[in-house]
Write a protein that binds this DNA or RNA. Structure first.
Lengths: 351, 351
DNA sequence: GCGTTTCGACGAAGCGCTTCGACGGACGAG
DNA sequence: CTCGTCCGTCGAAGCGCTTCGTCGAAACGC
């Protein structure tokens, strides 16, 4: 493999001049630059990543700490990772995968100290997450995908759960729904301090109350079986339900199956709005689900951009952002049974 | 950050002794080793990855070239990536993501020349793939996930499509099915030289013929709509069908929906066996699909292990492997209508 | 005309580690 | 007791780059 020294010899200049030509740190005359570029092309020169990293103390590597797979990552995560990797690459950075769960803060610390990464992207932050503290202490730039409990000014990008749940409720209320249930993630995720479970629940309840409606919410295990059971539980708790908002893909399929088995037509008798959904999942149901799909790709891109602005002071800094999920029409939402849509947006309290 | 020199000073030994203690390359007395270990612990020393990489010419990084997302990676890919990253980590390696499609061989070459990766894992190899040539030329160790056209002795791990399709056909034939259709990936994937499309198709047809049965196969776009249309096309071509083997997750949902709409009961009137399926996808259907699910995690692990054996001569070398998909029982497969299972395994040709 | 900038290029000192050759002392053999 | 071995340790030479200080020469001012 050709080294910079080889290029220098061939271009009849000193090693340092080649370096300056490459980095643009100091001016180089056009004639010299051209000779150097020719030499590089002829030799197929590519600067050695390790040497560059050692000398400059920047590895040009970003680490992505992602939830070590328990039960297969969903499409949203895949989309996120993919988009993050692509964005990193476009900016001359590499993305390495660090599969560490919330409890593995010490491992994160060790890896960070090895100086392999210039910055860290932290997925699936828990409300209280030791890994964040470790990164803070180590002084490594990082960006959270998600937010810890105290939404201080720690750098982050996240789904706007408040807005998303409000959009969901609004969408249904516009169609005349008054009795809406929320199928949340499981109690287990809550026990782990998984933030979306809390933020979406709070968001849903607030959105309902804000409209004078009574929220019905349930935490449901991630299984079709649990989804079926949830239908029973929720209908018992509020028989007048005309719509479900779900944030639990696997359980949603159970919900659909159970309703169909009970002879409840979707969307005529019951609307289903699946939120924070992976791409393509809506199509897998029959009828295709109306979804508010998670902006995984966008989060990946913005997360990396934010991180790069911290890593590399010369880039413009970006603010923390919250991105709402995007409505993707399907065929699982319709006006509330027996009501025309929009016929009384002013009648806040249920009959 | 503490350096090796700091450790050496604190332990009252020379820099090189610390290095030897760490790597075990040369003997170090117990007493000295202990002093060094203590010093390292007290300083929280972690060897600098760049310096180590530069001096030893090994980055301890593996690159994973994966299909740059077009339409959201499936669960299998996610599972694979995750398992590869984890296996790499367990062996002291990092996994970086290189999103490059088949046509981006030059980019791959440049990155490889930068010496950032000790080895490369190549996903979704096409039948003819320039990236493989680039890696061959560069002399970088690599392992293919999948196989190029000529299954020479290039290092690879792959799904055993022949075995998987044969298992699928066998499973159905055991239940008395004689008229079985295959819903393949799209023509577009075939045009891209996507190997599974060919290998599964050939495998299915061979498996059928081997049993004296007439294969009916169709390449279907990855959409529910296309899946619905496929049902019409295939039933027209062979009205006596009692089973579908599908290798196209999205289309499968269309197949199921269309059959149900036509009043064809699953599995009583028609069996559906979904092969090379992502984890969890079976559960998303109603009834839950019987699947032969893709061994994504296993491929990831074995792929990394194979690659490491090439990168690091001291590890035992592993042979190329083909892994069949694993049967995951659901409720979409039943004995052929009007026949008891196994009542005439000897009657090869249909009535 | 000479002193002073300015520009472009050079040399050398690291960055933190691996690894090679060498060396001193303890030890067994003769 | 002496010589040869072997074990454990040390010093130094890089790995391929970045970056700082410097310096010659061309360009400028008065």
């Amino acid at each position: 493999m050709a080294t910079m020294q080889d290029v220098a010899r061939r271009a009849q200049v000193s090693l340092s001049t080649v370096s300056y030509a490459l980095s643009g740190t100091r001016p180089v005359s056009d004639a010299t630059r051209r000779r150097i570029e020719d030499a590089m092309a002829e030799l197929g020169f590519q600067p050695n990543a390790m040497a560059r990293g050692l000398a400059s103390r920047r590895s040009h590597v970003l680490a992505l700490i992602y939830p070590a797979m328990e039960k297969g990552l969903g499409g949203t995560v895949a989309e996120f990772v993919s988009s993050a990797a692509e964005t990193a690459r476009e900016n001359g950075y590499h993305l390495v995968l660090w599969p560490f769960r919330t409890t593995q803060a010490p491992e994160v610390r060790d890896l960070v100290r090895q100086g392999m990464a210039d910055g860290v992207l932290l997925m699936e932050v828990a409300l209280d997450d030791d890994r964040v503290d470790v990164l803070d202490e180590a002084g490594v730039p990082y960006t959270m995908i998600g937010r810890t409990r105290d939404v201080t000014d720690r750098p982050s990008v996240d789904i706007d759960f408040e807005r998303t749940t409000d959009d969901a409720v609004q969408h249904l209320v516009d169609l005349g729904h008054r009795y809406v249930a929320f199928v949340n993630h499981s109690q287990a995720t809550a026990d782990d301090g998984y933030a979306p479970t809390f933020r979406a629940e709070e968001g849903f309840e607030a959105a309902m109350r804000r409209r004078g409606l009574e929220p019905v919410a349930l935490r449901v295990d991630e299984s079709p079986r649990a989804g079926r059971d949830a239908v029973a539980t929720l209908l018992e708790r509020e028989p007048r339900l005309t719509a479900f908002v779900t944030m639990n893909e696997i359980a949603t399929f159970g919900v659909v199956a159970e309703l169909q088995q009970r002879g409840v037509a979707i969307p005529e008798d019951m609307s289903i709005l699946s939120i924070v959904t992976s791409p393509g999942v809506g199509e897998m149901s029959n009828p295709p689900l109306t979804t508010l799909h998670a902006p995984g790709a966008e989060l990946g891109r913005l997360g990396v951009q934010k991180l790069l602005s911290l890593v590399d002071g010369s880039r413009p800094s970006t603010p923390n952002v919250l991105i709402p999920c995007v409505l993707e029409p399907g065929s699982s939402v319709a006006p509330a049974a027996g009501r025309a849509p929009d016929d009384d947006d002013r009648e806040p309290v249920a009959r």
